[in-house]
Simulated scan of single mutants.
Amino acid sequence: MRILVLGGTAFLSAEIVRSAVAAGHDVTCLARGSAAVPPPGASWLRADRSLGANAYADAEGEWDAVVDVARDPVAATEALEALAGRAAHWTFVSSCSVYADASVPGADEATPLLPALPAGTPSTADTYGESKAAIEEATLQAAGGKVHLCRAGLIGGPGDSSDRYGYWPARFARDSRPVLVPAIDTSPTQVIDVRDLAAWILRAAEKGVTGPLNAVGGQVPFGTFIAAFRDAADHRGRVIPAAEAWLARQGVNYWAGPDSLPLWLPPGHDGFMARSNSAALNAGLQLRPWQETLAGTLMDERTRGLDRPRKAGLSPGTEARLAKKLPRSL
């Protein structure tokens, strides 16, 4: 297949390129390359999508598959205008954040979506779901029945810089001091390995899979994850559970960002990491055991540095201060 990846230099898009090259496909990346270059074996069209439609001028000819991971509806629409007519299959990597309701466990692709971000409205972190919904709408309008809307969940595994999953194995491996965790042992977590997601996107393009499909991992209770993280890192210190209300009063953030506790969700999000993946599994999505994702992530975290600055998780100082207030052992 002749495949064009819009991106191809960071985390998921780079993994898609690696998978496609390994499978023997003719892969081209359209990317700036300002932070990283495409993986070996792929051709590189050096272009800046923020400059508008001219960015696609050198993406000539017909494409068996195009993969876009865009967050900005403007850039996504320009790509569609330039390329959709010459693509046999189009994958847009969307997100389960497009769903309007995150409260119901087991919800599937029929769940209503957020309203699409209105044209002319800036796409920001706060409008992420609406932006993805707008791109889904534009993609369906431009590419119709050849579109795979890949609604990804939380992505983990080697190479992730978001720290929304890797914080935990890295934290247990960093030192033996007490680890503060939210007291949510039975709450579900749902993480898809980046390698599985990339393989699925490629397989779906090869098979001509279309329609919206939730690309999410299996559900694992938070307490099971924590115990496995601790064992994998051989952590011998205390684990200190804290009530959710107490954490919120201390100013600890949910989910992501500075001084947060990853995998801890705000009220009303009982279904956010408990969505149905049955349709994608039936269409060919394959998931490795979650223990393999854990092991690969821990190895990657050790390589990149357990003490590196992080986008999510508690800082050592904040954790130590809070842990002194909750001296109970799990």
Rank of each mutant, 00 (worst) to 15 (best):
A84K: 03
A84I: 11
G85R: 08
A88R: 14
A88C: 09
A88I: 02
W90Y: 05
W90K: 02
T91S: 06
F92G: 06
V93R: 09
V93K: 03
S94H: 02
S94W: 01
S95E: 02
S95C: 06
C96F: 02
C96K: 01
S97M: 01
V98T: 03
Y99N: 05
A100N: 02
S103H: 00
V104P: 00
P105D: 04
G106S: 07
G106C: 01
A107Q: 11
A107V: 04
A107M: 09
D108H: 00
E109M: 04
E109Y: 05
E109I: 02
A110F: 00
A110R: 03
A110L: 00
T111S: 02
T111N: 00
L114R: 06
L114C: 00
A116Q: 06
L117C: 13
L117T: 12
L117A: 10
T121M: 05
P122V: 06
P122I: 00
P122A: 07
P122T: 03
P122Q: 04
S123A: 10
S123T: 04
T124F: 04
T124P: 01
A125Y: 01
D126L: 05
D126W: 00
D126I: 00
Y128N: 11
Y128E: 05
G129I: 01
E130W: 08
E130C: 12
S131D: 03
S131W: 02
K132F: 10
K132T: 03
A134G: 05
I135D: 04
I135Q: 08
I135E: 11
I135T: 11
E136G: 14
E136Y: 09
A138P: 07
T139R: 13
L140H: 15
Q141E: 15
Q141N: 14
G144N: 11
G145I: 01
G145P: 03
H148M: 13
L149P: 12
C150V: 10
C150G: 06
C150D: 05
G153C: 13
L154K: 14
I155P: 14
G156N: 14
G156D: 14
P158S: 15
P158Q: 13
G159D: 14
D160L: 13
D160I: 11
D160M: 13
S161K: 10
S161V: 13
S161Y: 08
S162N: 10
R164A: 13
R164Q: 13
Y165P: 11
Y167R: 13
P169E: 09
P169R: 12
A170Y: 07
A170F: 10
R171A: 04
F172V: 12
A173E: 11
R174C: 00
R174D: 03
S176V: 04
S176I: 01
R177Q: 11
V179H: 04
L180R: 12
L180E: 07
V181M: 09
V181P: 06
P182G: 12
P182C: 08
D185S: 12
D185Q: 14
T189M: 04
Q190L: 09
V191W: 08
I192S: 05
I192H: 01
